[in-house]
Nucleic acid binder design. Structure first.
Length: 260
DNA sequence: ATGGCCAATATGATTGGA
């Protein structure tokens, strides 16, 4: 089973890229972030025409996540548990049946948190605490589990071209990285790093200042796997070439193949 | 030269992104 995550930075702007990339990458499940539209505005018919089932958790203008799957959904959960007041659409989870049992896959759009001296940063940290609590519950199920998405976290200096420039950023602050470490320490595996330890492997390049041309990137899009999913991990790659397409998202897809 | 973008929104300056 091929599982991918991609922050498309508006599905309306990126529908042609999405269709083209689905055709070449042939993923079984896709976790999308920043669809930036309400559920009714999602191009569901175009995606269904390619053989995918679609589940969205949209929002007007900002955020919004979705799951695309060749297999039907057994269950869908919309929204991250732990705060009834939170109206931002940043989490959707689906359960699928395969020949070798169930697999649970979530599409995550973790808050950016900048600037750190505003209420945005505590919101990010609190959201991470909620994710840790929920991940703990899901891990107790002892199923193949994939928590995939735009984490807005640079895990280590190896994951950023210019660590000094990002030192004070909400994506790289020690407190942010500590929370991410706490999440991983529950027993999750960073699928990409399990397959590739090279420096200079990024999933995001800013639109500004020629960041793409200089490979001035960061690796912030991750697939975190439960032990049962890690046992089945075959490969993981970043589809970097998509960033060179005309009018691209600032993120590129990350894809893991699991023997499921 | 150290800047340079992009998307959505009662389409014009603002907000948010990272």
């Amino acid at each position: 089973m091929r599982i991918a995550t991609w922050n498309v930075n508006s599905v309306k702007q990126r529908i042609d890229h999405l269709v083209a990339w689905l055709g070449e990458a042939q993923p079984d499940v896709v976790c999308l972030q920043e669809i930036k539209c309400v559920d009714e505005a999602f191009p569901t018919a175009e995606i269904e025409a390619l053989g995918y089932n679609v589940a969205t958790h949209g929002q007007k203008t900002f955020n919004g996540v979705a799951l695309l799957s060749k297999r039907p959904f057994d269950e869908i959960r919309r929204g991250l548990p732990g705060d009834e007041e939170d109206v931002q659409s940043r989490y959707i989870e689906g359960v699928f049946s395969t020949d070798s049992g169930v697999v649970r896959i979530a599409s995550i759009y973790l808050p950016n948190g900048n600037p750190p001296d505003t209420e945005k940063y505590p919101y990010k940290l609190a959201w991470m605490d909620r994710l840790i609590r929920h991940a703990k519950d899901l891990l107790a199920l002892e199923e193949p589990l994939v928590l995939a998405g735009d984490y807005n976290v640079i895990p280590t200096p190896r994951d950023v071209h210019d660590p000094v420039a990002w030192a004070g950023d909400a994506l790289f602050l020690p407190q942010t990285r500590a929370k991410f470490t706490e999440l991983v320490a529950l027993g999750l595996t960073d699928a990409f790093r399990a397959c590739d330890i090279r420096e200079g492997q990024y999933s995001f390049w800013d639109y500004q200042a020629g960041a793409w041309q200089k490979n001035n990137g960061i690796r912030i899009d991750h697939l975190l796997l439960s032990p049962e999913a890690t046992d089945r991990l075959a490969s993981c790659r970043i589809d970097k070439h998509v960033r060179s397409w005309e009018k691209p998202s600032d993120h590129v897809p990350v894809i893991a193949d699991l023997r499921l």
